[in-house]
Design a protein around this nucleic acid. Sequence first.
DNA 1: TCTTGACTTGTCAAATATGACAAGTATGAA
DNA 2: TTCATACTTGTCATATTTGACAAGTCAAGA
Lengths: 80, 80
Amino acid sequence: MSNMTSMNKSEVLKIIGLNIKRIRQEKGLTQVDLVGKIEAQIDTTNISRIEKGRTNATIHTLFRISQALEVPLSEICKVD
Amino acid sequence: MSNMTSMNKSEVLKIIGLNIKRIRQEKGLTQVDLVGKIEAQIDTTNISRIEKGRTNATIHTLFRISQALEVPLSEICKVD
DNA sequence: TCTTGACTTGTCAAATATGACAAGTATGAA
DNA sequence: TTCATACTTGTCATATTTGACAAGTCAAGA
C-alpha cells in the first residue's frame, strides 16, 4: 500500500499539451507555422491532438516540437 | 535553407536513455528495483530498451520512470 | 451573410511502442 | 567451474502513435 497521489496519464498529457500550446502562442506561431519549422514531416493533426492531451506522444515527436519552438525539450516536459 | 545541425532521433534517444541509467544507478537501483517502484505494469525489457536508446518511448512511460526514480520528468528529458 | 484562418476531430493504413516470455551475455563470488 | 545477479536481445500479440486526408467547429472581418 502506498500513499502516492501521483498524476494519472491523462493529467500528464494535458499539462504537456498546455505547455506546448502556451509556448507556441508566446512565440506568436500558429500550428501551421510550427509544423513548417519542423524538419521531418509532421501534421497539424498530431500537433492538435498533443496540445489537447489526446495522444501519448513519443519523446522524439516532442523533441522535434521543442526544436521548432526553440526551447529545450525539458521545458515542454515540466509537469511537476 | 537552414544551418541546423540538430541531433537526430537516435542521438536523442541515447541521451535520454543514459540519463535514466545514470540516475537509476545514482540511486543504487537495479532495473528490477525500478520496475518494482512503478505503479502500473512495466517490464525490465522496456527499461533496458529505453536505457539503450533502442526504443522511442512515449512520454507517459518516461513519466512513470521519473516517478519511480523520484526525479522530475524534465530531468530525464535534458538533452541540450 | 460569406469568407478566411485557426483549430479540432474522425477515419484509415503503416509503423512501432509496450508487455510478456524465453534465451542469451557478462560479471563476480563461492 | 558453478551459481546467482544484472542486463540485453529476440520474438510475439496487442494497442496506439503517426502522418495523411477530409470534414467539421469557431471566431473575426468584410
